[in-house]
């Protein structure tokens, strides 16, 4: 039996979005045995990366349980849509980075969850330039 695979596609094929814009797309799960499935969760979230512990903020969250028969035909793509917030914008800093993504998690009755995420960019913030030689790295 093939392992299940999750595919996420964003509309407009875009990777950069603006605050207040609508992010929409669809996800599809292939090779999934529905009897083993417990729930599917879709979230639009940001998380931090860098030298600090991770921070995470969920902007939108949907969950479909197998028991409530919300899952429908898993072979067909399911759509999602949300209006993106004003902040925080995607940022590629030196020790702090902010990433936005759509994350799909498949929860099975037994065994490990299956997770897939697709990154997108919110806003157009430029990465900081490397510090100049005489520029101190930090202030008091």
């Amino acid at each position: 039996m093939n392992n299940p695979e999750i595919t996420i596609r964003l509309d407009d094929n875009g990777r950069t979005y603006w605050p207040g814009a609508t992010l929409s797309g669809e996800y599809r799960i292939d090779a999934l045995e529905s009897q083993k499935l417990q729930a599917i969760e879709v979230s639009v979230l940001w998380y931090s990366e860098g030298k600090g512990d991770e921070d995470l903020g969920v902007h939108e969250f949907w969950r479909k349980d197998a028991e409530s028969r919300e899952l429908g035909d898993l072979r067909r793509p399911d759509r999602f849509s949300t209006v993106l917030p004003q902040s925080p914008l995607s940022y590629d800093g030196q020790i702090v980075k902010i990433r936005w993504c759509v994350r799909v998690r498949v929860i099975f009755r037994r065994g490990r969850d299956l997770v897939c995420q697709k990154l997108f960019r919110l806003g157009n913030v430029a990465p900081p330039k490397p510090p100049r030689p005489n520029q101190p790295e930090r202030t008091g």
């Binding site: 990366e49 590629d92 980075k97 990433r99």
Partner: peptide
């Protein structure tokens, strides 16, 4: 949870990893 590494200018030595 193990997520595939994000190749979009991620740093493999970030705290999460």
């Amino acid at each position: 949870m193990r997520v595939q590494p994000n190749l979009d200018k991620s740093n493999p030595f970030c705290a999460a990893r």
